[in-house]
Design a protein around this nucleic acid. Structure first.
Lengths: 109, 109
DNA sequence: TTAGTCTATGTCATAACTGACATAGACTAA
DNA sequence: TTAGTCTATGTCAGTTATGACATAGACTAA
C-alpha cells in the first residue's frame, strides 16, 4: 500500500493493523469499479455516436432494452462481460475500448 | 463486414444473405473471446512475474486455487469480471492491461 | 521411497446474472 | 389531446458463475 494513503487513513482514525487485506481489497475493488464506469461511459458514447437506440443495440447483441438501460445506469446486476459485449456490439473500435482504459488510468492516478 | 472476409466465407460455400446477423454476432463473439484470451495471458504472465502461486493469488482476491487454474485454462465457466479481478489482484498495472488490449488489436487485425 | 509444493479437473450448493415482460416517465409531433 | 419514440425501473424464472472441496498429476528434494 502507498504510504500517503496509509497516513491519511491512520489520520482519519482507522486502525491499520491486520485490516490490510481489507484495505488492499478495497483499492482493487475501486479500480474495478472505476474501470467499469469508464467502459459504461464508452458504451453510451459509442451508442449515441452511431445513432442507435437502446432497442437497436439490444437487438444487435440479442439482449433487451431494459438491460441496456441498466448497463448505462451502472446497475449492480450488470456484469463486465455484458458491458464489453455492449461496447463491441455498439460498434466501438478496439481503440475506443483502449481509450476507456486510458481514462481509467488517469482517474486512478 | 470486411469484403475479404465476406469473399472467403462465400468461397467456402457459406450463404451470406440473411445470415448476416449470425455472422456479425460471430465476429463480435470472436472479438470478445480474443480479448478474454489476451487478458488470461496477462494474468498468468503477471502472476508468474510477481512469483505468486495460484494459491497466493486466490487468497489475494478471496477466490480459490481451482478457480485460478480454471481462469488460466480458459475454462468457459470463467467470467470476464473474474479475469480482470485476477489481473488487478496479481499486481498488473493499468499499462499491463492496456498492453493486453494492444495484443488483442494486433490479433484482430 | 516419502513428503512437500504447485497445478489441473470434476462436482455441487449457493450466489449472481440474464432476458423478458410490464409499466412509467419524458419528450416530440401531429 | 393523442400517438409515437425513447429511456428508466421493478420483478422473476431460468441460466450461469462462484468458492469450496476432493482428488490427481507433475515435479523437486530429502
Amino acid at each position: 500500500m502507498k504510504t500517503d494513503k496509509l497516513e491519511r487513513l491512520q489520520a482519519a482514525g482507522w486502525k491499520v493493523g491486520n485490516t490490510e487485506d481489507f484495505l488492499q481489497l478495497s483499492e482493487e475493488e475501486a479500480r474495478l469499479v472505476a474501470l467499469k464506469l469508464s467502459l459504461i461511459g464508452a458504451v453510451k458514447k459509442s451508442r449515441i455516436k452511431r445513432k442507435l437506440s437502446q432497442i437497436d443495440l439490444a437487438q444487435r447483441m440479442k439482449s433487451s432494452q431494459s438491460r441496456i438501460a441498466k448497463i448505462e445506469a451502472g446497475d449492480p446486476s450488470v456484469s463486465l462481460d455484458l458491458i464489453v459485449r455492449a461496447l463491441i456490439a455498439s460498434g466501438a473500435t478496439t481503440r475506443d475500448i483502449q481509450a476507456a482504459f486510458t481514462t481509467n488510468e488517469r482517474a486512478a492516478a
